[in-house]
């Protein structure tokens, strides 16, 4: 069944959302949306470096995304104004990446594959990389769930319970870099943050517990992946953006449900 490109595409989308559901929930709870953007945009620079040095794209992306995530964390720890810092780093990383890629011969034509994903061209190797990375992130989050949640809720409470919130923050940062590397092929650098935030925000409208929100975010993300692929097939729209469009529609729908529930 893996020989069918549509099946591979659907499995790639679903695999990614295993990780983006829970991780995206933490991104929303900790207000790391811009942080996710900066890390994701750095992926383009990673692509350029990988192409220039003949390394696998996934590895280049992972290394540069990690470097960006750690840089941002360190700057945040030093008390820089996060809004401005992240805005600067996110767009600088993107611009540097685009300029660097223009030096690499022959890539300019399919740049959009890196910006908006190329889910219909996912190979079996890509699929293994996506499922491997996503399972790793999901496993880490499940393993440390209570500690991550306590540290997210209140750092002082975490400290008093013997949990070091800095370590938990670092773990989320590393997980984010892995997800960026994994998601590049699926939705592209520009829309990775959307896959983290939109399904989680949609789930928030109806979830009554953190666990429900994380699981529901994964389900919404998976449904959006399948829906986006169908839309792409039916109307010949770009697949990555179509997936995000479906997630956004789910958000609008569930936000409406949440509002109605709150008003009764």
């Amino acid at each position: 069944m893996l020989d069918d490109f549509l099946m591979r595409a659907a499995l790639a989308g679903i695999g990614l959302t295993l990780a983006t559901g829970p991780l995206g929930s933490f991104v929303v709870w900790r207000r790391m949306a811009y942080f996710g953007d900066a890390t994701a945009h750095a992926a383009i620079l990673g692509v350029a470096l990988a192409l220039a040095t003949d390394l696998p794209v996934g590895l280049g992306t992972l290394v540069v995304a990690l470097a960006m995530a750690v840089t941002v964390s360190v700057l945040a720890g030093k008390g820089w104004a996060m809004d401005t810092t992240l805005g600067t780093l996110a767009h600088a990383a993107l611009a540097f990446g685009l300029v660097a890629i223009s030096f690499v011969h022959g890539v300019r034509t399919d740049l959009s594959a890196y910006l908006f994903g190329d889910i219909l061209a996912v190979s079996k190797t890509d699929l293994a990389f996506i499922w491997g990375g996503a399972s790793l992130v999901l496993g880490i989050i499940v393993w440390r769930w209570s500690r991550l949640l306590t540290a997210t809720l209140n750092e002082d409470l975490a400290f008093s319970a013997g949990i070091d919130p800095r370590r938990e923050r670092l773990i989320l940062t590393l997980a984010l870099a892995v997800v960026v590397a994994v998601a590049l092929k699926v939705v592209g650098a520009l829309l990775i943050a959307a896959m983290l935030i939109i399904p989680a925000a949609a789930a928030r409208g109806v979830a009554r517990s953190p666990e429900a929100m994380a699981v529901l975010a994964s389900i919404i993300g998976a449904a959006a992946s399948v829906g986006g692929l169908a839309l792409s097939l039916w109307q010949d729209t770009p697949a990555g953006p179509s997936i995000v469009v479906c997630a956004a529609l789910a958000f609008a729908l569930l936000a409406g449900v949440g509002l109605r529930r709150a008003s009764t």
Binding site: R31, S146, T150, L153, N154, A161, R204, R208, S209, P210
Partner: peptide
Amino acid sequence: LQIDRSLPMTAQRFLSLPE
């Protein structure tokens, strides 16, 4: 305790954290 509105957490669930 300032809780972000984006985090759905009942009092009951909160009491089960981290143990």
